[in-house]
Design a protein around this nucleic acid. Structure first.
Lengths: 227, 227
DNA sequence: GCAAATTAATGATTTATTCAAG
DNA sequence: CTTGAATAAATCATTAATTTGC
């Protein structure tokens, strides 16, 4: 662009009249969050993200909401365009067959947690795009618990800080590095705290949800009230 | 301009993983079948329709099933709305509800739908639905248009009814949902972490999201075109 | 170098599909 | 089946990148 010397403050101000334009810092932050696996943030998440990123510039909840919607859609589009170009239609059909088959298998064994086929895992490792958000198969009712429990097959691992984790994933390796992670809501022992980043490692980890007893999302809170 | 939705061919293929999107030809065919009087096709009819339309693009039985369900319901609704409009007797609530239904789906409706009564069932005329309000089908190149021989769907009836579901054991997870837990922001040194470098110190904002809320389960209900 | 003109990105809306409670 | 919600696809619209001619 042409405004090398443009004052950031000015920029934020001027753009506030039109549509929101994320600052570079906000954009990095959003992308980082996205890479953590967040795809469709909940209302609460949106609020927190917006509130946090507001320190980096003007931002509203709806901006966060739209950003994730658009980013998710466009990442998917780009990836699929690539996939199509690489593999062609025939492969796509095959993939879908596998896709459905695997689901049926899972359905057939509701408690077995045959999580994913090798093929699925390969795809997921290739890109977490559509799999990072996979939902739990089972919904275990009851109680007033409001936490997600993710069963970790790597037993005995501290959910707080996996120390000597054997890891072949560079990405995860980085994640587990000691950090200035600002955990304002640190996981307590026994909470089954779960790093989103561990999603890659979770290949054979069945996911389960205990409860869910709360109000549904209301994204309209972030949308403009109109005419 | 954006890059979405430009390539129809690509779209059809890429969406094969996600939602089904009928090709214009398929849509014409479905509407033609609908005009024949088919409203709730049997399993056999669904299979036959799907098999036939498959040469026009990807399509599954469940797509046919859903299409008829929705088309029937929405044609009825539009018809009802039209009648009300013609009579000019709609109340404010009615206007409001309709308006919101059309344009403000995400915004909470203060009151219930007045028209949601049993009387709606009466005024269904078998198939006089006018398609005036339907969105125009994309202009189809005549060369690509495929004339559809209307299927002979009025033969042996199947005892299996698609909508006769006694249990909900057959589920197919369609859309991806997130299963993420908190703390999305471990800022790593040396990464493209936005926290470092060129940002003001007080702008080093820790980003985290507690997962205290998530969407209710939404499982794709697999059509009981089952085995 | 600089803007007007053009193109590419992407924020914001709308539409269509699906879910799932009732 | 009906219907309110939730969400993804598609689209519209505005901003940023860039090209271009001076």
């Amino acid at each position: 662009m042409g405004d090398l010397g443009v004052d950031k403050e000015l920029n934020e101000q001027t753009t506030s009249w039109g549509r929101w334009s994320p600052t570079p810092e906000q954009l990095l932050a959003l992308e980082a969050i996205y890479k953590q696996g967040i795809r469709t943030p909940t209302t609460e998440q949106i609020q927190k993200i917006a509130a946090t990123l507001r320190r980096l510039g003007k931002i509203e909840g709806r901006n966060v909401y739209y950003w994730f919607q658009n980013h998710k859609a466009r990442e998917r589009y780009k990836r699929r365009r690539q996939v199509q170009h690489d593999n062609g239609k025939q492969t796509m059909d095959m993939k879908e067959s596998v896709f459905e088959l695997e689901h049926l298998k899972r359905i057939a064994i509701p408690t077995g947690f045959p999580h994913a086929s090798e093929k699925e895992l390969q795809e997921r490792s290739t890109d977490q795009e559509d799999y990072a958000n996979w939902r739990p198969i089972q919904s275990i009712n009851s109680s007033t618990t409001t936490s997600i429990e993710l069963l970790n097959l790597h037993q005995g691992k501290s959910s707080l800080k996996p120390n000597n984790r054997e890891n072949h994933d560079n990405y995860l390796e980085d994640e587990t590095r000691e950090v200035q992670t600002l955990q304002l809501f640190p996981c307590r022992r026994g909470d089954n705290c779960y790093l989103v980043n561990d999603i890659e490692e979770d290949k054979n980890v069945p996911i389960r949800v205990i409860n869910t007893n709360f109000s549904p999302n209301k994204f309209f809170e972030f949308l403009p009230l109109k005419k």
